[in-house]
Design a protein around this nucleic acid. Sequence first.
DNA 1: GACATCTTCCAAAGCGCTTTGAGTGCTGCC
DNA 2: GGCAGCACTCAAAGCGCTTTGGAAGATGTC
Lengths: 342, 342
Amino acid sequence: MNLRELSRQLGLSQTTVSRALNGYPEVSEATRQKVMAAARASGYQPDARARSLATGRAKAIGHVIPHSTKHEMVNVVFADFIAGAGEVYGQHGYDLVMSMVSDDAEEQAYRTLARKRNVDGVIVHGPTRNDARIDLLRELRIPFVVHGRSSDVTSEYNWLDVNNRRAIERATAFLIDLGHRRIALVNGVERMDFALRRRLGYEGTLHARGITLDPALTRSAEMTEPHGYHSAREMLALADPPTALIASSIVVAMGVRRAVEERGLRLGRDVSVICFDDMVSYFPNGDGEPIFTATRSSVRAAGRRCAEMLLEQIEAPDAAAVHELWEADLVVGRSTGPGPQQ
Amino acid sequence: MNLRELSRQLGLSQTTVSRALNGYPEVSEATRQKVMAAARASGYQPDARARSLATGRAKAIGHVIPHSTKHEMVNVVFADFIAGAGEVYGQHGYDLVMSMVSDDAEEQAYRTLARKRNVDGVIVHGPTRNDARIDLLRELRIPFVVHGRSSDVTSEYNWLDVNNRRAIERATAFLIDLGHRRIALVNGVERMDFALRRRLGYEGTLHARGITLDPALTRSAEMTEPHGYHSAREMLALADPPTALIASSIVVAMGVRRAVEERGLRLGRDVSVICFDDMVSYFPNGDGEPIFTATRSSVRAAGRRCAEMLLEQIEAPDAAAVHELWEADLVVGRSTGPGPQQ
DNA sequence: GACATCTTCCAAAGCGCTTTGAGTGCTGCC
DNA sequence: GGCAGCACTCAAAGCGCTTTGGAAGATGTC
């Protein structure tokens, strides 16, 4: 069933049928009703490709996901972000098209996406410091929103970020206020902008509070459970071990907890842990009182908002760039307690 | 830059340029080289929509993901499955288009997908028992592969499944051999076919070994960490608690562990735990000796294989339906030990 | 009643590609 | 030299939709 067939059945021209279905005013209410009814009855749905070719709008958003051979990791929070964004796309009749691409081919992937014209815009995931993709996308003149930010990029672009620096500052200060002085940071890969900002927050707060940074108390790697485990295990075995750790995600925190418990220590009493909680659906931070004291911000909500921002940008391509900086909550759970008595 | 412009520059017809680029034999090697070079130089890439409209092939695969309002959960393993499938799609020049859809609109989503003709096939996720989607997709005549199976569906369809029943049979037998008699099952939602099969494996093995099933020792819900925690916590508080638990995923197992440790028990000594490990990238089951004794099967590999099967099916739509049943490994880790002395 | 103005509809062009069917020029053979 | 056959190339017809630029009929105004 296509438009020609449908209009033939109705004894109307394709023009009229198309207009009736798309809500144009040049068609009488009576015929519109007739057309709508016939369309529903026959299950007519316009061919997306033909419509897209005719209108110039793909009605789809691209997400390029690098799957590196080096760190073969699909981001933990990714599924929830996509879920949030996908909701909004669905509401607005947009599709989500994903490209999994080896990370040395990522730039090419964006070029291809732009040329093939099957997306109207893209979301940029996991920006690094001075991320080259931003200028590339500007050059390609394709609307985009960055989930996160990229330090040292001077051009204007749309982004939505959590105030990672501020969040970790607050977490660090919270631990210091509790009497901790040996505070470790189990960070993500610091090529990633968010991880870098978290480190800055950590270092800045230690410095401001007169605590000298001990390089032995920071680790940085992919945010997996084993990363948390090994980092914590090694650091807790030091002669002068940390009494508190900041974990970059709830998954990392799980690893930290494993190491803590393996050592026979009790979380929240012997060792304090704060983590960054992205409120991932299948791994909530407890369901009553939080398991972990955490800085908290919903990645799913971020996905929703990024999608909205992008759709707005597509509607009005000449609008000024939009930025949103979200503050994370600091929620207190059972994983933190007073530091050691001096 | 489009085909017309490119052929104009080259002084050739669109036909010839198109044929040269698509590897048809009716064009001389010399012109082919010339055309290729010009295309590369100008960064020409055919418009996906126009090509798709002309060829009738969308070069894209659809994944419909229900996001229920009831259980607002994005499947844990989903990201890894997609990553695997996406790799294969990428290698074959296919895109992946995702529809997030509220689960009461899922059937409509498939219809729309079929009508809009912007995908050549779909992957069905999370089949339930007697899943209506299978007959629907047959009726819509759109190639599809089911990740999992659907009990009680009589029609033929393509599927790839892990032998969940056998895996849990082996896990249960393993625990019985270790001397356990009070064995609990912390299962997923049993509307899901895989969860149902796991229960059958559990019940069957208990029965075969002469152990009477205690309904107090089974739980079933979304596979989240809190599900593992609450289930284990409640069951461990019973007058006659389980000495071993089978967890439906590694995330659930994390919750189980939390409950075990909270009770002051030691994993692998006081309580044994076996889980189903989907080998999710960010949450490996340890990196040397496994943390948990587990039945193990890579969901990422499953994604890859499902994608291959689907692409083959698209190439040869009249080929017979293909099935693959994968056996899970049973790997021994540190979370299991001998049962209580009689 | 004649003219202007809406309202309602239509034919046809065009989006950018693939593919059919038809040349055109060249080579080889008799 | 004439012809068949081959190697290339092309013009044009779609794919299914939107949208432009009219046209036809209905309505209103003087």
